[in-house]
């Protein structure tokens, strides 16, 4: 019994990481209807950025966030202004195929720079530390990841609904032409949206790298988890994304508990089941 409870708790905490993967994806879809196929590879890029920072500066991976987050934001802004803004329009093909191409380029760039050897961010004592609650032992790192995920979502929610930037995000999302008429440069606003999305990818990448080993090829897997969390949670809802991440995380740990080979499969199957019975997810945004 405790074993199963443990699997569920681990799954919930894992869901926090998946929510971090998903939040950035959900954000740019909300603002500019862009689905970024390279999203997972950008998370892996962030992990490698942290790896380099740790090696060069000799700091703890969590401190490397101070370098990774700004750097990822800059990458995001430049990427959007120079490349992705040119793909946005009524046709879904250009953004899809350009980000797909970007994904392949990123993967191979990382392969060239860091080889295919698995790497890991060494978090030190925090990786093995745990607190116990009853019969359960909860790892500090997964717990921290979950707390950070909740904080990130609170923060994104606040930006969206209480700041001038959030107002601009919602305005361009509603009607790009009219937003432009009001003096908003949509290219710039989109740039800021991807910058914010990649800032979250930065956090996700560092936490991923401390949790498990990574190599240049794992990006597409993270994209798929992010995507599943978004769809399970319901498009356009950040809290739904957290819920979606948790459902996916629990499905994976419980599936893995039944049979280690079923871990990923169980997550995908739960996703397909949700798609079959609740195609709009659990918390879809109400259409105006």
């Amino acid at each position: 019994m405790t074993e199963w409870l443990n699997a569920i708790v681990q799954g919930v905490l894992l869901g926090g990481l998946y929510a971090l993967f998903a939040a950035g994806l959900s954000l740019i879809f909300g603002v500019m209807r862009l689905v970024n196929i390279a999203h997972g590879d950008l998370i892996v890029l962030a992990a490698y950025m942290a790896l380099t920072t740790v090696m060069v500066m000799g700091v703890h991976p969590l401190l490397a966030l101070l370098v990774v987050i700004p750097l990822m934001s800059i990458v995001g802004y430049i990427l959007q202004r120079l490349l992705l803004n040119q793909t946005l329009g009524n046709d879904i093909l250009p953004p899809l195929l350009v980000t797909f191409g970007l994904s392949v380029i990123l993967q191979n760039m990382l392969l060239e720079a860091y080889t295919a050897d698995p790497q890991k961010l060494n978090g030190g004592a925090i990786e093995t530390a745990s607190v116990s609650a009853g019969n359960l032992s909860i790892g500090i790192l997964p717990l921290l990841t979950f707390v950070i995920a909740v904080l990130v979502i609170v923060c994104l929610q606040w930006i969206f609904y209480n700041t001038a930037l959030g107002r601009q995000f919602r305005a361009v999302s509603d009607n790009q032409d009219i937003a432009q008429l009001m003096g908003l440069n949509k290219g710039h606003v989109f740039g800021l949206a991807l910058a914010l999305s990649l800032a979250v990818c930065g956090i996700a990448g560092v936490l991923l790298g401390m949790r498990t080993s990574f190599d240049p090829s794992i990006g597409s897997g993270r994209l798929i988890f992010a995507f599943e969390a978004v769809i399970i949670g319901g498009l356009g809802s950040l809290w739904g994304t957290l819920a979606g991440g948790i459902v996916l995380g629990v499905a994976q740990t419980v599936g893995g508990k039944i049979n280690p080979g079923w871990q990923l499969l169980a997550g995908h199957i739960v996703f397909l089941l949700v798609l079959a019975v609740r195609p709009r997810g659990f918390f879809p945004r109400v259409e105006h």
Partner: peptide, 20 residues
């Protein structure tokens, strides 16, 4: 190897943007 894939990806991106 990897360079070849990067070139392929780059060419595809350029084509998609400049000559859809």
């Amino acid at each position: 190897g990897t360079t070849y894939l990067m070139i392929l990806g780059l060419v595809a991106i350029i084509v998609m943007i400049k000559a859809p």
